[in-house]
Design a protein around this nucleic acid. Sequence first.
RNA 1: CGGGGCGUAGCGCAGUCUGGCUAGCGCACCUGCCUUGGGAGCAGGGGGUCGGAGGUUCAAAUCCUCUCGCCCCGACCA
Length: 556
Amino acid sequence: MRFSKMLIPTLREVPADAEAISHILMLRAGYVRQLAAGLYIFLPLGWRVLAKINAVLKQEMEAIGAQEVSMPILHPAEIWQQTGRWDAIGDEMFRLKDRTGRDMCLGMTHEEIMTWLASREIRSYRDLPQTWYQIQTKLRDEARPKSGVLRTREFIMKDSYSFDADENGLEKSYQLHGEAYHRIFKRCGLKFYQVESDPGMMGGATAHEFMAPSPAGEDEVALCSICGYAANVELAISVPPEIKFEDWQFEEIHTPEKRTVQEVSSFLKLKPEYFIKSILVISENGPVLALVRGDQELHEKKLTKIIGTHRPAQKIEVKEILGVEAGFIGPMNQKIRVVADTTLKEGIYVSGANKPHYHVKGIKPRRDFNAEWHDIHIAKDGDRCAKCGNRLRIEQCIEIGNIFKLGTKYSIPLKAVYLDENGNEKVIIMGSYGIGPARIAAAAIEQNNDKDGIIWPKSIAPFDVEILPLNMKDAKTIEIAEKLYKDLTKKGIEVLMDDRDERAGVKFKDADLIGIPTQIILGEKNLKEGLVEIKDRRTKGAVKAKVEEVAANIKS
RNA sequence: CGGGGCGUAGCGCAGUCUGGCUAGCGCACCUGCCUUGGGAGCAGGGGGUCGGAGGUUCAAAUCCUCUCGCCCCGACCA
């Protein structure tokens, strides 16, 4: 491909709206343009990268026996009503009516439609297992699109769905996908982790996410490098650092105007970990007092799993329900439900005295108050691994893929059943597995860039090689450039030739920005000796090679 | 949806507080000359409903009201 003929609108300056590195570089290097919030145009270079990624996805999907299909993006409401998700999902679903007034929606995922198909076409255990996948557009009316192509309202997704006769079959399909995903992300040149994740609205018991570490990511994962424990902080369990307790006597202490843990902590000159933080929330079944250690944060989602949906209590409510102003509430003598973090089971603590401007020192959990004990704190960097006791670290990550064991959540309501060997009707067991190609591209950039621009992993670069004929007015340069272009292309190597009549500096800057892994530089002086330079984008290291040996030096 | 910021040429910005000549700068773009190993130089040129609507005023990019859009933080997130 010739640069002069291709739409590659590079930008010298950083666009004001972009913040994430991948977003800035995709815009600057001419890979994407934004149409509106969360809607992106993929320009020729960007589209080539996605095509490369999709090719890897297809290969690895076919390798585990998955079959590609194409699904409608416009769905009738009825199917989503049958699984309950028409009502369960809120504003995130794009809804519309057709001309007859029939309710429709735009597909945000395809469990319903895939299951509908399975329910009609799968009859017998002989038809199983099946795995179907597609690489298509999904639409979600995201509350907050952000970070370029990382969170958009319309995006391409590779989603596959497995249909098995029983749990063992599902386990096998799940493992196959997990292994395929490892190969895919490895081939795409990404650093990534497989972590336990919250099945959430998808239902089902087991789920894992594939996470590419990057500061642009929206997720945090807890990782133990000793035993390999890896989990999204949404569900990660951890043991906060142990502390030494003093043998305090139970005593009330006057703490005028000291309300927060921090205030009381510095007032009493005691570290926050010696405090019990009491947080009042209002659940659907009434108020609940949640307790975590002073240096910990309450994990809303973990609490939700125990007490259901809830909201923080307002200041007036605290006073009405507990009879004391927030800031002086403590766990003792409470008549309402109390849920405490397991960290607090042992030790002697300080907490509110349930009396204005007083705290209590020397509180012994289980002696001075009782509670339901659960892990309800957020795992933090430096906590201990709950499995092996070693130090956990927290890393920010981009979710690039996920795998879910769905079980029968969709097959039951949509009546996806089959007859087994004995003629008994059984429900199909399902799994679903997603990958976001644009997120792979963005993660690859986040993980591979320098001050000059993108450094693509070879496998997903838009081209293999960029030829830089520095002086387009020099006949010899053009002649050799054309020859190299032809030779390399013939070998199946994808070549971009910067045939623009630009100064050398411009070509170098653009080439580095665009990030094609290998540059072949044609300078007049070198050409006089029959030499060109082969330069590695990542290392910036260059070697001189004879013109006729270039093709042999470049591996396709 | 809550909080914050921004909207002036393709891109990046100044001008707005304190209203006043033809709305400016850099880059990009077009023409010519020159130049050719890291975003050159000189000369000339084109390009603007100042996000939109309404209002105040002799006069509005600038003040007021409403509205739309985009970004960031949070909530939310198959």
